[in-house]
Amino acid sequence: MSCTLQLRNLIWATSKHDVYLMQNYSVMHWSSLLRRGKEVLNVATPIVPTMKRPGLLSQSLSRVQISTMAVKENLLVAGGFQGELICRYLNQPGVAFCTKVTTDENAITNAVNIYHNHNGSLRIMTANNDAAVRVYDAESFACVNCFSFDWSVNNTSVSPDGKLFAVLGDSTECLIIDASSGKITGNLKGHLDYSFASVWHPDGRILATGNQDTTCRLWDIRNLSKSLAMLKGNMGAIRALRFTSDGRFLAMAEPADFVHVFDAESGYVKCQEIDIFGEIAGISFSPDAEALFVGVADRTYGSLLEFNRTHYNCYLDSVF
């Protein structure tokens, strides 16, 4: 496994036994049951989209360096360092849609989201260094919205009901946006540096944000005047955040060496620290909340680690 720069969304678990991860110029599907991997997307060679529709701004791409990815409901979405967006249905051959979302020189796609909007339609959201957030329909791949901001957008996350989304980037402030209108409904102040990660609690009331100041802050969406709590990392920026589907645990990853797992039921006081070696390429809980996968992006020690949840105490336990 290899990745570059400080982007940490390259691992996605769709079940306890199925994980998607980036490896060089490929996205691989790893089966922990079969103990083997299978390539599902190769971006080293030219990519020609299979979906052809009038007005659809699809284009062929070649040798894409993947910067971020997401997998949900049979849809794989990957972003690239030159503003690329690649969409593939996992049950269909070929890439359905791909394009460059922007021609801006500093165009890196920092984050992609797959989510249901408040009407239930499946959507794709991209966050780019050109200070824009774009929303695509996951069926037609038409761009249905584009929101512009005053700074490069490093991360977005959508609330469980699809009505709000958080926008974080090269600013000390984090914004809460109405997903329909694009209007700012909240401004989160407290972080000291740029932000890189966010995640919503499954109940939609709590938002967690990760920052270069080595902290994660928790916000109550009903009262945004100040953060509920501040969770501290050891050394580096908080680059990835994930809640379990039951809301019990919050995983927090630094750029290298440390993943912290907080127990939400204890008020985020109890924590297990996972000390590994190497840059962290991403973290993902399985949908059943029984497993945590950690990607290690190191030329020598690159690997995918699996940790299983134990039920005789409140922590996760390594199977290795």
Rank of each mutant, 00 (worst) to 15 (best):
L224T: 15
R239T: 11
I221E: 02
G186F: 04
Y301H: 13
A251M: 02
S198A: 15
T50P: 05
N74K: 08
F243S: 07
V77N: 03
R123F: 08
L7R: 13
E273S: 15
C143K: 15
S140C: 04
T103H: 13
L228A: 05
L241Q: 08
C98Y: 04
T50V: 10
N155R: 15
A70C: 12
A197F: 07
G169I: 01
R299C: 11
V261W: 03
V71M: 02
E265A: 13
L21T: 05
N155W: 12
R35A: 01
I206R: 02
G80H: 02
V167T: 09
E73M: 07
R217K: 15
G94R: 04
V135W: 09
P160H: 10
V112P: 01
K163S: 15
L231I: 03
S26V: 07
H29K: 00
I124T: 02
T45G: 09
G120M: 08
V319G: 08
E290I: 00
L168R: 06
C174A: 15
I66V: 08
I283V: 08
A131P: 03
V101P: 01
I86Q: 05
W30G: 00
N24K: 13
F243G: 04
E139C: 11
F320Q: 14
E306T: 10
A197E: 02
I276C: 10
N308C: 01
H191C: 10
V133H: 06
V48H: 14
W219D: 06
L228C: 12
A229Q: 13
D275Y: 10
K270Y: 11
M125G: 15
W30C: 00
N119R: 14
I66F: 02
H201W: 02
D130R: 01
V95Y: 03
V261F: 01
E73R: 11
M51T: 12
P46H: 09
V261Q: 05
L292T: 01
T103W: 08
L85N: 04
R63L: 09
D170W: 06
F320L: 12
A96P: 03
V48G: 06
A127G: 05
E84F: 03
F147Y: 14
S121K: 14
K52D: 11
W151K: 11
A253Q: 06
S318W: 09
I114Q: 02
S266A: 06
S180G: 10
N155T: 11
L122C: 10
S67L: 04
A291F: 00
L192G: 12
L316E: 01
I176C: 06
V199D: 14
F277H: 14
F262Q: 03
P287T: 00
R248C: 10
M69G: 03
I114H: 07
R217V: 05
N42K: 12
D257S: 11
Y315H: 12
E39Q: 13
V27R: 01
S60P: 09
G278V: 07
Q92N: 07
T214R: 15
S286N: 00
N24Q: 15
S225I: 14
R205W: 06
N128Y: 06
A132K: 14
F147E: 09
S121W: 11
T215F: 08
G267I: 05
S159V: 03
L122I: 13
E39L: 09
H29R: 00
I124Y: 03
Q92C: 07
I280W: 03
I283L: 04
A197V: 01
E279M: 12
L85E: 02
Q23I: 10
N74D: 13
Y268Q: 04
Q212L: 14
